[in-house]
Design a protein around this nucleic acid. Structure first.
Lengths: 152, 152
DNA sequence: AACCGCAATGAAAACCGGTTCCATCGTCAT
DNA sequence: ATGACGATGGAACCGGTTTTCATTGCGGTT
């Protein structure tokens, strides 16, 4: 049931891990994906990212895109959110600490916001109810200035 | 997503609405589903709800369960959340006003909590970023007392 | 009670995002 | 250059949800 993007469960693996002898290989595809992620300012679906890679002339399979995004998400290199349709969206992570997003439901652009107060609140109410091992998800959606304007 | 309320809230919008002539029909299936929802205290998937209906000897199709849950969710008669696997879970709504849930990730049982403070916070930070038409999703997961105990 | 129209139903098929298989490819240490 | 093994990717698969469409049955009418 649950075991996907958990709350940063395991301690990290460095960007370029090196597990005794065998190390992560630098492939053309991995580099291209990283490059595209660096360019995309908005949360995008794996399929959109794959399409963008193809648009740029990269030869890369959808499977590979999914695989890399999964790993990057575990690393904390990319943030993930679920849109209203349940689809997972990805974007390069800007800040390391825990944060939330205000995302444009039209274009996907988002800004990161601190959420310490909310976290404390969540932990508090959950604890009051007797729950333990608490985790939470919080996403804020709206229309960014640009999209709001062009929608008048 | 979009409201599909007929623009005639004229008379009775009761459990058994009858808007002008022929509209919502009182079917065996609809009743059974409502009954099961009334009994289930935890967030359950459409498939689980369907299984429970069958267990009770009801003849009802999975499609119908999905359709009803969809409508009830729009009505606000049932609350919905997404579990970690992206599956939608349903539960009868207890309080009318806006609220959030502290849900057990093991058994699905949940308690409703007020969230005015969080809402204000969400609206504030979003507004500061220039976003409008703000909406948000917030779910808290943990282990309920019972599940925490039996997990020693 | 018999009749009818249309909403409701539901089995099967379509859909869809995402994952797994596995044969092949390409990197990197030697 | 060579070989081993990780990386790749097209196809098959998976599971939840929606759509299709022929059939059913609720309810008002005759």
């Amino acid at each position: 049931m649950d075991m996907m993007n958990d709350g940063h469960g395991a301690h990290s693996t460095a960007p370029q891990p090196e597990v005794r002898g065998t190390r992560v290989r630098g492939t053309r595809q991995a580099g291209a994906l990283t490059a595209v992620l660096a360019d995309l300012p908005a949360f995008s679906s794996a399929q959109d990212i794959h399409a963008e890679l193809r648009r740029r002339g990269e030869r890369i399979g959808l499977t590979t895109v999914y695989r890399h995004l999964q790993v990057l998400a575990e690393d904390g290199s990319v943030d993930t959110i679920r849109d209203a349709g349940g689809e997972t969206l990805y974007r390069r992570c800007e800040t390391v600490s825990h944060h939330h997003h205000v995302t444009c439901r039209s274009c996907g652009r988002s800004v990161e916001v601190e959420g310490r107060a909310v976290e404390r609140w969540a932990d508090k109410v959950a604890a009051e109810a007797g729950y333990v091992d608490i985790d939470h998800t919080l996403e804020i959606f709206g229309l960014c200035p640009d999209c709001a304007r062009s929608r008048t």
